[in-house]
């Protein structure tokens, strides 16, 4: 009896050891973004205060991870726990899939206490980016809340990336996303619609394995 328990323990600890984690970072070009710090942007600057997003239904090495990630720039560390140490390929959804959305409220990282659920209209917010754009001495706030799954505006995006032998992290590069600030389009997107769909497309092309 005791022996078999020992074997069981050994088995489990081996299982745990075979697990690895891959950090998730948010970048602007080659620089890692820090909350509240200012970055140079064109001739002016940008301060990023909030970056929060969901990575869900993550598939690595052919098997689906038991949990996704609510990335939050404010947290010290953001990482995905993966069953293997080497990533050949990763697939994930940026946001929350429409089936989960249509079932109403979920728990864990999907608990609305995390501030990623819309209240005046239902559905999870897939991605949040907030900060201030300083341009010619004028400070202008920007708020991008990207989400929505109904009425033809489904903002979930499935992303597939190929790895190489020495993948060390998953990066979201906000370079393209932030370029939209220099156009004269609205700097506050808080509801589902065409603009949110376009931004979701940009974000879907902004993930990299490095």
């Amino acid at each position: 009896m005791i022996r078999s328990i020992q074997i069981l323990i050994l088995f489990f600890s081996l299982g745990v050891r075979a697990q690895d984690s891959i950090p998730v970072k948010v970048m602007y070009d080659r620089f890692e973004i820090q909350p509240g710090k200012t970055i140079l942007f064109q001739d002016d600057s940008i301060r990023i205060d909030v970056v929060k997003f969901y990575l869900t239904n993550v598939v690595v090495g052919g098997s689906e991870l038991s949990s996704g990630l609510l990335f939050d720039l404010e947290k010290d560390q953001n990482y995905l726990l993966i069953p293997i140490s080497q990533i050949d390929e990763i697939q994930f959804t940026l946001g929350v899939d429409s089936l989960t959305n249509s079932n109403g409220i979920s728990g864990g990282i999907l608990d609305p206490i995390h501030g990623m659920y819309w209240s005046w209209q239902s559905g999870y917010i897939n991605f949040k980016l907030e900060g201030i754009h300083f341009e010619n001495g004028i400070a202008e706030e920007f708020n991008f809340h990207i989400g929505g799954f109904l009425n033809g505006y489904n903002c979930e995006r499935r992303i597939q990336l190929q790895g190489s032998s020495n993948v060390s992290r998953l990066e979201l590069d906000l370079y393209q996303m932030l370029q939209t600030l220099s156009t004269d389009q609205l700097k506050k997107i808080m509801s589902p619609g065409k603009r949110a769909m376009d931004l979701a497309d940009i974000l879907a092309d902004s993930f990299f394995l490095r």
């Binding site: 109403g104 659920y117 819309w118 239902s122």
Partner: peptide, 16 residues
């Protein structure tokens, strides 16, 4: 019809 599920309903008045 802003709310699609009864469990999400309470968030609207709570946050308003």
């Amino acid at each position: 019809g802003a709310i699609h599920h009864v469990d999400a309903q309470a968030l609207a008045p709570i946050n308003h």
